Amino acid sequence: MKLESFLLEILVCPQCRSALAEGGTEEHPELLCTGTDCGLAYPVRDGIPVLLVDEARRQG
């Protein structure tokens, strides 16, 4: 998965408003919160980020 760079610049974590970074695997891509207190990972399904806190998992 490779999101357009302008999307990563404007998307933020819905929980803490920190920037998001691409992560996960090719089979299970995710957007990772870069905030130090939050640590949520949001799934990307069919190339569409699912930025719902209820759908996120804790990193680590």
Rank of each mutant, 00 (worst) to 15 (best):
L52G: 07
V44T: 04
T36P: 10
R57H: 15
Q15I: 03
L40M: 12
R45T: 04
T25S: 15
L8G: 07
V44G: 02
T36D: 12
L3E: 03
A56C: 14
E22N: 01
A21Q: 14
I48E: 03
G47D: 10
R57Y: 07
H28S: 11
D37C: 04
I48V: 15
L11E: 11
P49M: 07
R45N: 06
R57D: 08
V44R: 05
E9F: 00
T36W: 01
H28R: 14
A19C: 04
L11T: 00
L51W: 04
Q15L: 05
L52R: 10
V44A: 10
R17L: 10
T34L: 12
P29L: 14
V50R: 10
Y42T: 01
A21S: 12
S18F: 03
G35V: 04
Q15T: 01
R58Y: 05
L20D: 07
L32N: 03
R57F: 04
E30W: 04
E55V: 00
C13K: 00
M1V: 06
L31R: 02
L40G: 00
T25N: 03
G35H: 05
A21G: 11
T34C: 09
T25W: 09
C38L: 12
V50Y: 08
T25Q: 09
V50S: 06
L40I: 07
G23E: 05
Y42Q: 07
S18M: 08
M1Y: 10
P29K: 12
A56L: 02
L7D: 05
K2L: 11
Y42M: 03
G60K: 08
P14N: 11
E26T: 13
A21H: 07
M1A: 14
R45A: 06
C38I: 06
T25R: 07
R17A: 08
A41I: 02
L32A: 04
C16P: 04
G24I: 06
C33P: 05
C38P: 01
T36A: 13
C33W: 04
I48C: 14
V12H: 00
F6E: 15
C16L: 08
D46Q: 15
A19Y: 04
D37T: 08
G60E: 15
P43G: 11
H28F: 13
E9G: 02
V44H: 12
S18I: 07
I48M: 13
L7C: 07
L51V: 02
E55K: 10
E9N: 12
H28W: 13
D46C: 12
A56Q: 00
S5A: 15
D46E: 15
G47E: 08
C13S: 11
